[in-house]
Simulated assay, not measured.
Amino acid sequence: MAPVLELSPEYLDAAATYSMEFPDDVELPSIADRLQAINDLEEGPTTFEEGFEESILAVVWRCGWERSLLEATQRGDNLARDRAGTQLLGSADEVLIERWVEDPDRIWEQEVLDPALAGDLEPLKADLVNSCGYPFVP
């Protein structure tokens, strides 16, 4: 069984605000650090549009659960795999995902999630690399 990690206040606040559960078996990056890293890439002051932090939260939420699903499946932890799968199966209906992720035909679910739940982890691994990056890439 994976270690249970303590969630930082920013994720606890988001969980309370949006009624979202974040995985507690995957280390999640600091949203403030992610914003600072983007700011550091720019030359001069950076202004973020309203909702930018929410969009990062949506990505972190999905990527965290993807990593949880991958690791649980690889170690044969069916309970954790089912928990992650349940979270991801309902993701299209989550407020932040609905607001910030455009996938009306649920292509991600068909091409990434369904194969992972059926035991084919390759599309999930590719999505972690292509859509999530550090620290979610195994």
Rank of each mutant, 00 (worst) to 15 (best):
residue 12 L to A: 11
residue 14 A to Y: 01
residue 14 A to C: 10
residue 14 A to F: 03
residue 15 A to M: 06
residue 15 A to T: 02
residue 15 A to K: 01
residue 16 A to C: 07
residue 17 T to N: 08
residue 17 T to E: 15
residue 18 Y to G: 00
residue 18 Y to N: 04
residue 18 Y to Q: 02
residue 19 S to F: 09
residue 21 E to L: 10
residue 22 F to P: 01
residue 24 D to F: 05
residue 24 D to T: 15
residue 25 D to T: 14
residue 27 E to S: 14
residue 28 L to C: 02
residue 28 L to Y: 01
residue 29 P to T: 13
residue 30 S to W: 12
residue 30 S to A: 11
residue 31 I to V: 15
residue 32 A to K: 10
residue 35 L to C: 08
residue 36 Q to R: 13
residue 37 A to S: 14
residue 38 I to E: 11
residue 38 I to M: 11
residue 38 I to S: 10
residue 40 D to A: 14
residue 41 L to C: 06
residue 41 L to I: 05
residue 44 G to M: 09
residue 44 G to I: 07
residue 44 G to Y: 06
residue 44 G to N: 09
residue 44 G to W: 08
residue 47 T to H: 10
residue 47 T to G: 07
residue 47 T to M: 07
residue 48 F to R: 06
residue 48 F to W: 11
residue 48 F to M: 06
residue 49 E to K: 08
residue 50 E to N: 11
residue 52 F to L: 01
residue 53 E to R: 15
residue 55 S to G: 08
residue 55 S to V: 09
residue 57 L to M: 13
residue 57 L to C: 10
residue 57 L to Y: 10
residue 58 A to H: 05
residue 58 A to V: 10
residue 59 V to L: 12
residue 60 V to R: 00
residue 60 V to S: 04
residue 63 C to H: 02
residue 65 W to K: 04
residue 65 W to E: 02
residue 65 W to V: 04
residue 66 E to K: 03
residue 67 R to V: 05
residue 67 R to W: 02
residue 68 S to G: 11
residue 69 L to G: 01
residue 77 D to M: 11
residue 79 L to Q: 15
residue 80 A to Y: 09
residue 80 A to S: 14
residue 81 R to Y: 08
residue 82 D to A: 14
residue 83 R to T: 15
residue 88 L to P: 00
residue 88 L to V: 07
residue 89 L to S: 13
residue 90 G to K: 05
residue 92 A to C: 09
residue 93 D to I: 07
residue 93 D to K: 11
residue 98 E to P: 01
residue 103 D to V: 02
residue 105 D to H: 12
residue 107 I to T: 14
residue 108 W to K: 00
residue 108 W to C: 02
residue 109 E to F: 01
residue 110 Q to R: 13
residue 111 E to H: 05
residue 115 P to D: 04
residue 118 A to K: 14
residue 120 D to F: 05
residue 120 D to S: 10
residue 120 D to G: 03
residue 122 E to T: 13
residue 123 P to M: 09
residue 125 K to C: 00
residue 126 A to H: 09
residue 127 D to W: 00
